[in-house]
Amino acid sequence: MTAEELVLAQEESAMTAPEPVTLGRGRIVLRRFLRRKLAVAGLVILVLMFALAFIGPYLSSWNYKDQDYNNFLTGPSATHWFGTTQIGSDVYAQTMRGLQKSLIIGLLAAVLSTGVAGIVGATAGYFGGWTDRVLMWFVDLLLVLPSFLILAITSPLFHGRTWLLFVILLAAFNWMVTARMVRGLARSLREREFVTAAEVMGVHPLRIITRHLLPNMASLLIIDATLNVGGTIIAETSLSYFGFGVQPPDVSLGTIIADGTDSALNYPWLFYPAGVLLILTVMAVAFVGDGLRDAMDDAAGTASSTSTPGDAA
């Protein structure tokens, strides 16, 4: 425990001394999370991004679908804050619209993908036997089947449907590798004594999975989810080729970046606003993820070993 935390622990006990309240794990982790400046900063940035994405469009008179036939490929100006595109769309309005889409798609798909990976992997690992074999067979199947093939086949079915379906698809092609890792971890955690202790206490297997196994691999899951946010935002563009999700004239950060990359040097305004926002998003998510991980870890004392060398004596 660091000196700083000693003080905090003291405060904690001092605070709770008069009327000891038993807090749940969630409250304690939240409290420790809120003590991490970087993590809170990340959270604030994310909130601001959402605010920007949903309030931003009203600040400008341009709509992302509008085209200004007087201005093609003009740089930033008072009328077009971020300039215009080849066909005269307002880059600011498009970026805001893209941010809206990407934030939701990225966060949702990431959480969904990691969640499915965690549940499927942990279930397979914990129960073993047939459950394990069937689930892993399914995972392997999804891994070897090329995702674009499935997309090509199913594409007519989904065409033009809501973009939520698109989020689900994005997650569906993303969770398998993590699920395999989770399964491995679950298999070794299953042998740990605290799991045995819960079993002989009569705790329900599903509760063991959600309450003991998954929290004990929180580091892996959080890192995975964090990486997924950036990954899905980019991956979304490649799926757009198949006619999914974000279709012109609608835009996402991914499509803006993909379109703007070629002209990044000549017409930087097409590229940079979306690029910077994407980086900010990914960074903010990483800070939040890190903070969450630390908050969970240092509660459990696994992040930095609190044992001193002398303890080994």
């Binding site: 794990r25 004594e193 605290f194 009569g202 929290p215």
Partner: peptide, 25 residues
């Protein structure tokens, strides 16, 4: 069990650990 560090889930605060058998039952 022998080693409390192994038999208590390191990720649960003591209050939750003690409440677990109660909730289970």
């Amino acid at each position: 069990f022998q080693d409390p560090l192994a038999s208590l889930d390191p990720r649960l605060p003591v209050g939750d650990l003690l409440a677990e058998p109660l909730r289970t039952h």
